[in-house]
């Protein structure tokens, strides 16, 4: 080959490279152990006689060991203190181009948070049935050696959800955070002692006996999920306004008392059969049909589908009852809030 032409090519190629060609559009790369063939053909004539020759070159794609872990939780996971078996969800993707098994581990002792979930109880589940939902009958409890085998070159087999369960200790207060990371590591890279040694080559460590190469992830990836402590259960804030017969706010006989109950449902657990009751105070009389739920007037009659689920003096004597579960049919999922109002007059 002419040295000058070669140099020219090189300088042009270097210029192209300096433009910084980056391409991250490949979802799944060419599988390890694939042979890339190329055959060039030259047609030509010498003294009017056509001829053709060809020349081939081939090489084999090696395996890239790469992995990516992300949190699948859209926000901090609300937990109450104490509670057990709270769940964080992660997605583990083999971003390499071969079939690899991954080791899993959990780190709860991370900096930058307020407390650590109980490490001994952290458990890792692999979403064996692929529904992104923890199901202890069908999913697999990780035991240190049965990590997921993912094929980075096969769509649908390259990723799996992983669930991490942890216990929240007692004595934590609302707003406190606990970070937990899930760490996935290529078994091959770990065995070869090459984790995080980007560019290292593991001879014959890849599919079909090709070499395996540590990719930009270092063949290890982690992601953080966060628990956030919230106050548990249902709270009710009650307030009263007085409307006297003179247009003022003096609570003399005949004055109307308008009570407002602000019901707040927080915490991590859904609530069934949520019924709010408030007995009418002594020396007052309930104002007929005065119950209002979230701005909607309610009847005093008994609960019935299609009417409403509020009553007075039916479910409970001399008491306002508002059935937020609508006869047991509605589960209240936090965070939720309701505003209930009713009126009495002073006897």
């Amino acid at each position: 080959m002419a040295g000058r032409g070669y140099k020219q090519i090189l300088s042009r190629l270097a210029a192209v490279l300096l433009l910084g060609y980056m391409d991250s559009s490949f979802a799944l790369g060419t599988a390890a152990n694939t042979v890339i063939n190329n055959t060039a053909v030259v047609d030509y004539q010498v003294a009017g006689v056509p001829n053709a020759v060809n020349a081939s070159v081939a090489f084999t794609i090696e395996e890239l060991l790469d992995v990516n872990v992300v949190s699948l939780d859209a926000a901090n996971v609300s937990v109450v203190s104490p509670s057990s078996g709270r769940q964080l969800t992660f997605l583990l993707t083999n971003t390499g181009n071969g079939s690899e098994q991954f080791l899993l581990s959990v780190d709860t002792a991370l900096a930058g948070d307020n407390f650590d979930p109980v490490p001994a109880s952290a458990r890792i589940w692999i979403d064996a049935n692929g529904d992104n939902t923890l199901d202890t009958l069908n999913d697999i409890l990780y035991n240190g050696t049965n990590g997921p085998v993912l094929d980075g070159s096969t769509p649908g087999n390259d990723a799996v959800a992983v669930f991490v369960l942890a216990d929240i200790p007692a004595g934590r207060t609302a707003g406190e955070l606990a970070n937990v990371s899930l760490i996935a590591t290529s078994v091959i890279a770990d065995a070869a002692g090459e984790v995080n040694n980007v560019g290292a080559e593991i001879t014959a460590g890849g599919d079909g006996g090709v070499d395996a190469n540590i990719g930009v992830s270092g063949a290890q990836s982690s992601a953080i999920g966060t628990f956030e402590v919230v106050n548990s259960g249902v709270s009710i804030a009650k307030s009263v306004l007085v409307f006297d017969t003179q247009g003022g706010q003096d609570p003399h006989p005949g004055a109307v008392l308008r009570y407002t109950l602000q019901v707040t449902v927080s915490g991590a657990s859904s609530i069934d059969n949520l019924v709010i009751t408030d007995s009418v105070p002594a020396n007052t009389t309930y104002v007929a049909n005065s119950i209002v739920l979230d701005g909607v007037s309610q009847t005093d009659a008994g609960d019935a589908p299609g009417v409403d689920f509020s009553d007075f003096n039916i479910s409970n004597a001399n008491t306002v009852t508002v059935d937020l579960s609508q006869g047991g049919n509605i589960t209240v999922v936090p965070p939720a809030s309701f505003t209930i109002g009713f009126e009495v007059t002073i006897d």
Binding site: Y21, I36, N37, N38, V41, V42, D43, Y44, Q45, V46
Partner: peptide, 19 residues
């Protein structure tokens, strides 16, 4: 002898994209 009408044809290799 001089060669004329030279045409080189190269199919793009498998699993490869032309840059």
């Amino acid at each position: 002898q001089p060669a004329t009408d030279i045409v080189i044809t190269n199919p793009l290799p498998n699993n490869s994209r032309y840059k």
